[in-house]
């Protein structure tokens, strides 16, 4: 199978999953106990009979469920999620204005996670059993055990309140790449990347140890290659294959973290938007936000699989 065939096949496999994601997101509003129209009424509002009828028509609530789904899906494909219940704006607009902030935070955090986790995992595996390994093991366990929101709060207290190095509230009304915002983002990104780097480190370490025991390592050494070459060119290269899979799973983990971290650092992002929408029961926004996240993750996994096939020639053929 050529690479192109592989990618095509893999793309086709994502289609049913994407459809499943839309079904689940669509059903969210319909799994609610009671009349689905209730979730479309703003909290505390007391609309007239006529207004309710109008809502039912607008959201096709009189149609059978599957018709409603296809009508919804048709709109969703062109990014039309209707109007927010609580705020007087288009759902798509609310999400698109916030998406860049979340993406930036996520990419920043993933970068930190990989930059720390992968080299630390290599070193721990090579120095297996000695002090360095032990210290990194404890650091990783602490990184995994620490709730990210708590770590964020502690960092705000130390760097924002005590030392006063950063502001405790984000700069408002600035573009995504504004230096003030990028500076502010360092702490959230570090907070978010910590647990991921700990996980990546552990995976990299155990994968390296598994690879180190393989025969091709002895073969590479028996050729007379330097230890460094054996580790970097042969062992780490093979270990990365399994790390890429885990890194893809980390994207879901980072999205989770972003929802919480945006709250901790009062940042405007998709996560915080969804949370506010939940507290206000603004279902069109929740639905659109969750769908966005699901789609992003499906494509991230797809990207990981494609990278995987580049790294591992056995997949391609």
């Amino acid at each position: 199978m050529s690479l192109r065939q592989y990618v095509t096949k893999r793309l086709l496999l994502t289609v049913p999953i994407l459809l499943g994601v839309t079904v689940i997101t669509f059903l969210m509003t319909h799994l609610q106990p009671g009349d689905p129209v209730d979730v479309l009424i703003p909290l505390g509002a007391n609309p007239s009979e006529e207004a309710i009828r109008q809502l039912r028509r607008q959201y096709h609530l009189n149609e059978p469920l599957y018709v409603q789904y296809f009508l919804w899906l048709k709109d969703a494909m062109v990014f039309d999620f209707g109007v927010s219940i609580q705020r007087d704006s288009l759902v798509s607009e609310a999400i698109l204005t916030r998406l860049p902030y979340t993406l930036l935070l996520g990419v920043f955090a993933l970068f930190i996670a990989v930059a720390i986790g992968v080299p630390a995992g290599i070193i721990a595996a090579v120095r297996k059993g000695d002090k360095v390994d032990e210290v990194s093991r404890i650091a990783a366990l602490l990184g995994i055990a620490t709730p990210n929101f708590w770590l964020g709060l502690i960092l705000i207290f130390i760097f924002g309140v005590q030392l006063g190095w950063i502001s405790t509230i984000p700069p408002s009304d600035v573009s995504v790449l504004d230096p003030a915002l990028l500076t502010y983002m360092i702490l959230p990104a570090v907070t978010l990347g910590t647990a991921s780097s700990a996980l990546l480190m552990r995976i990299m370490r155990s994968s390296m140890i598994e690879e180190l025991n393989k025969e091709y390592v002895r073969m590479a050494r028996a050729k007379g290659l330097a230890a460094r070459t054996v580790i970097v060119k042969h062992v780490a290269r093979n270990s990365l294959i399994s790390v890429v899979t885990v890194a893809a799973l980390q994207i879901a983990f980072i999205v989770d973290g972003a929802v919480v971290i945006e709250q901790v650092f009062s940042m405007r992002g998709v996560g915080r938007l969804i949370l506010q929408a939940i507290l206000q029961r603004d279902f069109p926004i929740i639905q659109a936000g969750v769908l966005m996240i699901g789609v992003v993750i499906v494509f991230a996994n797809l990207a990981a699989d494609i990278i995987y096939s580049f790294l591992d020639p056995r997949i391609r053929y």
């Binding site: 499943g20 994601v21 689940i24 879901a252 983990f253 929802v259 969750v290 993750i297």
Partner: peptide, 22 residues
């Protein structure tokens, strides 16, 4: 397994949040 795959497309916490919202 398809159900598992689809649920895997949603992050753990986001899915839990939505379920609690419901």
């Amino acid at each position: 397994m398809r159900l598992v795959d689809i649920l895997y497309a949603f992050p753990f916490l986001v899915l839990a949040i939505v379920i609690i919202a419901i």
